[in-house]
Design a protein around this nucleic acid. Structure first.
Length: 258
DNA sequence: ATGGCAATGTTTCATTGA
């Protein structure tokens, strides 16, 4: 069973990329972030024609998340948002697929460390943490994947000195991500040997991709039970080379499940 | 110190993202 995450930066613009990617990478589940679509505009029919059912929640202009799953592998018990956390921004959707509880997250960007958006990001992380502390008990086979907007370590940043203390790489953000990992959620990418300078996002500006000036901020976190059956995790950086790409690349994890 | 690129919208620039 393959489960992937991809911040598409507008599903309206990127739908052809998603359909093409799914045709070449027929994963069982694809978690999408930044769909930037109201629910009435979601391309349900096009995805169904490609063999995928979609669960989604969105809003105009910003945010928006979705879980795509193969038609033969229905998603059940869909939950929108972090229960009990009042948030108008559509950033979380969860469902159970093939016995695996899948949580798709789009963590706030934070803008800059002295902003209200940064304080919202840290409060949001705390709410996610408190909710996941219960979810991991209720669902031993748990995967929490998406755009975390945090690079965990120096090796996840092209220039850690320049990024030190900046948003996406500040100590409180790294601590917030570590607190979630400490619930028993493991970074699937780091379970395997990886090429140095592996990133999942590159700035559109200043030839970010060509210079490989990137960050690894999109993560697949897995519970102990899934860690035991996780056999691969990779970033599809080829996707970033395409015409009119998202600034994020897909991340795919493979699980040896019945 | 600044801008650079891309997407959006009661658009023709401002805002946001990362």
């Amino acid at each position: 069973m393959k489960i992937a995450t991809w911040n598409v930066n507008s599903l309206k613009i990127r739908l052809p990329h998603v359909l093409d990617w799914l045709a070449r990478n027929p994963v069982e589940v694809l978690a999408l972030q930044e769909t930037k679509l109201t629910d009435d505009k979601f391309p349900t029919k096009e995805l169904e024609a490609a063999g995928y059912h979609a669960s989604f929640v969105g809003q105009k202009t910003y945010n928006g998340v979705a879980l795509l799953s193969r038609l033969a592998m229905p998603a059940t018990d869909v939950v929108i948002d972090i229960p009990g956390f009042a948030d108008e921004q559509k950033r979380v959707i969860s469902a159970t697929v093939n016995g695996v509880r899948v949580v798709c997250v789009y963590v706030p960007n934070g803008q800059s460390v002295d902003s209200d958006k940064y304080r919202y990001k840290l409060a949001w992380f705390q709410a996610l943490h408190d909710w996941l502390s219960r979810e991991i008990v209720a669902h031993p086979k748990l995967v929490v994947l998406g755009d975390y907007n945090v690079a965990p370590e120096d090796r996840d940043v092209h220039d850690p000195k320049a990024w030190e203390g900046q948003v996406l790489f500040s100590a409180p953000e790294k601590a917030a991500l570590k607190a979630i990992a400490d619930l028993g959620l493991h970074d699937a990418f780091r379970l395997f040997e990886q090429a140095p300078k592996s990133y999942s996002w590159w700035d559109y500006r200043m030839l970010g991709f060509r210079r490989n000036a990137g960050l690894r901020i999109d993560h697949v976190l897995v519970s102990d039970a899934l860690k035991a059956v996780c056999s691969a995790c990779s970033i599809d950086r080829e996707e970033r080379k395409k015409e009119q790409p998202s600034d994020h690349a897909p991340v795919v994890a493979t699980f040896d499940l019945a």
